[in-house]
Amino acid sequence: MSGGSFYQRDRQWHPRAYDPAYKTSVTRSPQKALIALDNTLSEMTGPVFGHDTLGPLDDDMILNFAKDGEPIGQRIIVHGRVLDEDARPVPGALIEVWQANAGGRYRHKKETYLAPLDPNFGGCGRTISGPDGSYRFRTIKPGPYPWPNGPNDWRPAHIHFSIFGQGFAQRLITQMYFEGDPLIWLCPIVATIPDKAAIERLIAPLDMANTVPMDARAYKFDIVLRGRRSTLFENRMEGN
């Protein structure tokens, strides 16, 4: 089914562009109002990536950078479903993830945190959602790390997610947090989201049913992309 335009974004639910407690947003936030643009084909279409894009270890961050052993840290499986706002599965969604290692150190030239790199951990992975919208990948639970915002700010443990749906208007980058982490409620980046219920949508619960005994724990993280209207009321009586 090809749909119509996407439901408008609830920008009171998403984070504010300008939030002085997250200091970098001060000079990187537009000051003028966004101009409303009814979806055209340019926003309703978007790139779709096939499974031939993926290598066999792309969804396995425990193995995809392993050199002379496996990375140090808590072995976890992250799984969930990509849905739209009508709770319909979104198949074929490309999900890219990146994260720090178990000690909170990113493999990046500009990273200066004194915690060491893990020689067997790269920190990037990707996968594509299946016909029922489900996805999973394997990794090491990332550590928290300090960052130069306030004098003593620490990011909660998190995994960054970049998701392509079926239209460019669905394009989304977000972060997954871990159930029970006390740093979540202290973090100025988390707090750019004004609504506690919205923040909770980004917190993955421990999922014992999907653990692998004596191997890896599991966390469940569902992702909701924008839903789309039926085409029925857009001068296309063929509907959906």
């Binding site: 609830d10 984070p15 706002e85 960054h160 977000t174």
Partner: peptide, 13 residues
């Protein structure tokens, strides 16, 4: 209806 997953910054990395 579900709410869209809220966005977060892509960050420096």
């Amino acid at each position: 209806r579900l709410k869209e997953s809220p966005s977060q910054t892509a960050g420096p990395y």
